[in-house]
Amino acid sequence: MKTALITGITGQDGSYLAELLLEKGYRVFGLVRRSSTVTFERIDHIQDRLELVSGDLSDQNSLFYALEASQPDEVYNLAAQSFVQTSWTQPVLTGDVTGLGVTRMLEAIRIFDRERRIRFYQASSSEMFGKVQAVPQDEDTSFYPRSPYGVAKVYGHWATVNYRESYGMYAVSGILFNHESPRRGLEFVTRKVTDGAARISLGLSRELRLGNLDAQRDWGFAGDYVRAMHLMLQQDEPDDYVVATGETHTVQKLVELAFSAVGLDWREHVKLDERFMRPAEVDLLVGDPGKAKRKLGWEPEVNFESLVTMMVEADLERLRGNRRSAVSSAV
């Protein structure tokens, strides 16, 4: 039985990855921060099969403790301050957790694992490409980040490469393009749109305010992307991979599909709001997953239209459930 330690296990990717590893017979540990607010809803259904350890990427000693407690074969570093918009208002926190946090974990593994047995995965991001230098983007495309989040991710990416080349560690980065699901946080534009469409269709809201509708992204399903993470750590030699669909869509297309799924005309409900415009927008992000397909045998299984429909239906079900619960409580 292999053992894995996942940082960020309570997030979207962490929950899907934990499910995948449990299905494969892994013993799964999750690093969680001490908090007065319980945020385990994404892993509630599997929590009795997980082993949670306390720790934080900003606290080096807690990472040593987590490694000692879990004795992992594989470490998946998914934890980060991952909301791009927030990185503009909290750039120092983003740099500390999303950037330096990677180095803290790599250094903890380097010292703890003298035999170089542990395999390490770093969650890199397409936001590192920012002001893109080539279209589509692959593993050799230069980085030009356009947000504090992107800058921090570049730091973590190159730290991973440096530890691999300097210390002979099995350390890889997955340069993942946007990946979504019903478990995506409401602060992200995809979930904001699908939740907004569902609310309006149920009469819970009247309008949805958004920023740049012309922004284009390469969106895939998070459940597909965690399969690529696992495959990266099963190869003979460590390497970095772009994980993407190779297709791009505008925010407006996302909006059209979401509102169409509930039988509404988006133009009657969506309002543009300057508050949601970024100080610096990225250009056309579209990934070339050719290397992942060739070397890992990875292919995305859920297309964009199916993904948006899945998310809208999940939000409708959640909101209807909330309404039924409210009615029952009132009675």
Rank of each mutant, 00 (worst) to 15 (best):
K253C: 13
M310V: 06
R324L: 06
F259R: 00
P300S: 10
S142F: 12
L186R: 13
R49K: 14
D236H: 13
L202D: 01
S173Q: 12
Y144C: 15
I43Q: 12
L284C: 13
I118C: 07
Y149P: 08
R110H: 13
V282P: 14
I6M: 14
D218W: 06
L21S: 03
M232H: 00
S70K: 00
G246F: 06
A171C: 09
N212W: 09
V53T: 15
M169R: 04
M105C: 07
V132A: 13
V135W: 12
S260T: 07
Y16I: 09
G14A: 12
W266E: 04
Q12M: 15
E274V: 13
L21G: 11
M105G: 08
V102D: 08
P238S: 10
I118W: 04
E107N: 13
Q12G: 12
V151D: 03
D138T: 10
G130F: 03
Q47M: 15
K291I: 10
R275D: 11
S125N: 09
A152P: 03
L285E: 02
L202E: 04
E313V: 10
R34T: 14
V282M: 10
D56K: 05
R294H: 05
A79T: 06
Y26C: 02
R294Q: 14
G99H: 11
E237C: 10
Q85V: 08
A79H: 03
Y65P: 01
D218P: 08
W158A: 00
E256P: 00
R275M: 08
R199H: 03
E107S: 10
M311N: 15
Q71P: 01
A222V: 11
L285R: 04
E299H: 14
R227I: 06
W88G: 12
L285G: 04
V92L: 13
G168Q: 07
A215H: 08
V242L: 04
G321V: 05
R117K: 07
E313W: 07
T309G: 01
L233V: 12
L307G: 09
R117P: 03
S181D: 09
E268R: 11
R183T: 09
F40T: 11
A228G: 00
L50H: 02
D48S: 15
G168V: 06
V84T: 02
F120A: 00
A79Q: 05
N212Q: 11
F177D: 01
R191E: 11
G150W: 09
W298A: 05
T37F: 11
Q81E: 14
A4M: 05
R146E: 12
F259Y: 02
Q47F: 02
T160Q: 07
S36F: 07
T3I: 13
E305R: 14
S205I: 05
T94Y: 05
Y163M: 00
V132W: 09
R324G: 01
Q137S: 14
D240S: 14
A159D: 08
R227P: 00
D44Y: 02
D44S: 15
T94L: 06
P136Q: 07
E268A: 07
T10L: 05
P72E: 06
R184S: 14
P279F: 00
M128G: 02
P279Q: 04
T98Y: 11
L5N: 06
V132G: 04
Q252C: 01
S124H: 04
Q122Y: 15
T89Y: 09
A258W: 01
P72M: 00
K271I: 10
Y155A: 12
Y16G: 02
A80W: 10
I200R: 04
M105V: 06
S125P: 01
A18N: 05
V97C: 07
T250S: 15
L204N: 01
